[in-house]
């Protein structure tokens, strides 16, 4: 089943004198349960592409369909609510609310959806255990390491069982050990929950873990490879 369909999408920035063709005629599909990396050098258009998929930005032309809905038909709060229900996000930084504990941050999107703390608690504890933070559930972000904070962000992105998770350079601020841990956790959850993961990176060690590697340069997809991983 196709979760995401991108058809001939372009994003052109006109703001300055120079036109920037940040995403240039990209056509891609993502199936349920994929674990895909978008790879490319800095400035190649990874963030722009993820923002278009995540409904945080509108394409200059072309269509982005998520679960059969055309993203450009949604506006304002409808679009925000669509994101809340369908997409999990992990950013490079500023992922967590500093005044809330790891548990409260993890349940945040579920609570936005209207669930009570009680209804969330099983799911949240299960996820925080899965990301190895069962001991730190009541800690605030400032008491957690960068890697631990990103793991909470992953837990939060998955908590509401979205259609897919977008992670824009989730390991950019992490050391190699934390990077490996985070990737292992993401991979495990991807398998256990069968939730599509799309993450961008320019780190070769991260690329290694992906089952599908989409390489972009100057806004164009220059290769799209599936690795055969036989365990």
């Amino acid at each position: 089943m196709k979760v995401i369909e991108i058809h001939n999408v372009n994003k052109i920035y006109n703001e300055s004198e120079v036109k920037v063709h940040a995403v240039n005629g990209v056509t891609l599909d993502f199936e349920e349960g994929e674990f895909a990396a978008i790879v490319g050098p800095s400035g190649s258009g990874k963030t722009t592409l993820l923002n278009l998929i995540g409904g945080l930005d509108n394409p200059t032309s072309g269509d982005v369909m998520i679960g059969g809905s055309l993203m450009s038909s949604l506006k304002g709060s409808d679009l925000t609510d669509f994101r809340m229900h369908n997409i999990g996000f992990v950013f490079q930084a500023y992922n967590l609310i500093p005044v809330l504990t790891a548990r409260e941050n993890t349940e945040f999107v579920m609570r936005l959806q209207g669930k009570t703390a009680k209804e969330c608690s099983n799911r949240v504890e299960e996820l925080l255990k899965a990301v190895g933070l069962e001991e730190r559930m009541e800690a605030r972000p400032s008491k957690l390491s960068g890697g631990q904070q990103q793991r909470v962000a992953v837990a939060r992105a998955l908590a509401s069982k979205p259609k897919f998770v977008l992670a824009d350079e989730p390991t950019a601020n992490l050391d190699s050990k934390s990077t490996e841990t985070l990737l292992d956790i993401m991979e495990k959850l991807n398998k256990e929950e069968n939730i599509t993961f799309i993450f961008s990176t320019h780190d070769a060690r991260v690329v290694k873990k992906a089952r599908r590697v989409i390489t972009i340069e100057d806004g164009k997809v220059i290769s799209d490879e599936y690795k055969n991983i036989e365990d």
Partner: peptide, 16 residues
């Protein structure tokens, strides 16, 4: 402001 942007990105709508 970055934190509020993040909240809006992950699904906190304008009313909230």
């Amino acid at each position: 402001i970055k934190e509020i942007g993040m909240l809006m990105a992950i699904g906190m709508n304008r009313i909230k």
